[in-house]
Design a protein around this nucleic acid. Structure first.
Lengths: 230, 230
DNA sequence: AACCCGGGCGACCATCGGACGCTGGTGCC
DNA sequence: GGCACCAGCGTCCGATGGTCGCCCGGGTT
């Protein structure tokens, strides 16, 4: 699978060679091996290293079981700001609105927690997703929201740049996956400009503060930083 | 067990009637039923309510197993500042020093995380306790540190008051448990003075910011607040 | 020596943050 | 209608925050 072994040049080259963006990206060239060897779960600094287990997937529906399947959401396509998508698709304005909705659900949860004297979440946690589902927003779910966090981040931190990227990828007929990958690189530049403190970049923005920095974005920043220092 | 159904008047009455402290506490009277009915795990606001399961305890050592038992630490006793405890006991200065040590271990972990581009903890987490153990501080462990957090909190936020409380409880020959209970109430007063934001009280203090607010303290603040408003 | 008080901390649990990859919707031919 | 692509999200997993209560150290009798 491509996504797990993302190569910087894959996503950057199409832009930096065909349609350069404001931030310089000519130096974003890294060997395949470097990222292939970048552990997928490098989140723990201590010694425990344990082998990955194969996961079993999706229990295949019992014979006597009730089938209450909600149809899945329409896939996203790359749209320009204000553009409404053709066919059975969702646009990126809708995607970003989902993040705003989550922010509102978080505020509701915080309000409730404060009333009840409970621990008050500062981020969009499982509890918030549960609350959203409970409140009828069944179209919101954790894997989806976590998947596109960095895209929303770019939208929050530099709408101009975000809009420009959307237009380019739309015009070029790229799929959502390609656009999503491309969103990493402007963020890496912002981290660089903030002495590689991507956490700080997120925390400084009102709407972004409530989202966890995606592991992959943190890894990419770290990788780029080490290249710079060698 | 007494601790799980702490009654405010139990801990406060001995002081407010025999040896009043700076903060007024005459109004801290609450019915037993109120705290008995205060759920022990009220941390989740959504609907799931599931019955508590009985826990099994301490696997009784296999016949062929190696017995590498570290002897347990000496119990704490209530000591005045500077006093060194008599007999096989530890004093409260030592207890508080343990918290400072944890703070240093946290800083080390943060340093390591930053170097490796990993998620950087802002609080004393499992990872920090693991690091402490790894670094040879086998006398530090999570249950102990969590148990006395609010005592350390009082020490950080108002040494005078903390020292005074220690002297009183020492002179009266009270045990550590009683002193520990008594530490809650000055903190509740500080929360009151900070519009019941105990989280904020912790966060505003440099050394305290890194410790989670204990559930019981949050509950006591909430209870006291609701009394005030009725 | 025997007893019992009380507290240290091993071990457990629900839930968390995080991610994979199956399933099936969708547009194209 | 059939096929191939690709992304939504159900479902899993290691680790976390939090706590209980067993066990035994220690002072007292």
């Amino acid at each position: 699978r491509r996504e797990n072994t993302l190569i910087l040049s894959d996503a950057v080259a199409p832009i930096s060679t065909k349609d350069p963006l404001p931030f310089g990206q000519g130096h974003c060239q890294v060997g395949t091996s470097a990222l292939l060897s970048l552990s997928e779960h490098s989140s723990d600094s201590e010694d425990r290293r344990l082998g990955k287990k194969k996961q079993k997937r999706k229990r295949p529906r019992e014979p006597g079981e009730e089938a209450e399947d909600r149809p899945r959401e329409h896939p996203f396509i790359v749209t320009e700001p204000g553009e409404l998508p053709r066919g059975k698709k969702n646009g990126l304005d809708y995607l970003f609105d989902l993040y705003e909705q989550c922010g509102r659900f978080l505020e509701e949860v915080q309000q409730l927690c404060k009333e009840r004297g409970e621990k008050c979440p500062m981020k969009v946690t499982n509890q918030v997703f549960r609350h959203a589902k409970h409140a009828g927003a069944s179209y919101i779910n954790k894997p989806k929201m976590r998947h596109y966090v960095h895209c929303y981040a770019l939208h929050c931190l530099d709408v101009e740049h975000s809009n420009h990227l959307r237009k380019i990828y739309k015009d070029r007929g790229e799929n959502v996956g390609a656009w999503r990958q491309a969103c990493y690189f402007p963020l890496i530049e912002m981290a660089r400009a903030n002495s590689w403190d991507i956490e700080g970049v997120f925390n400084r923005n009102e709407r972004l503060r409530i989202w966890y920095v995606p592991t992959r974005l943190r890894q990419l920043c770290h990788l780029e930083k080490s290249k710079e220092c060698e």
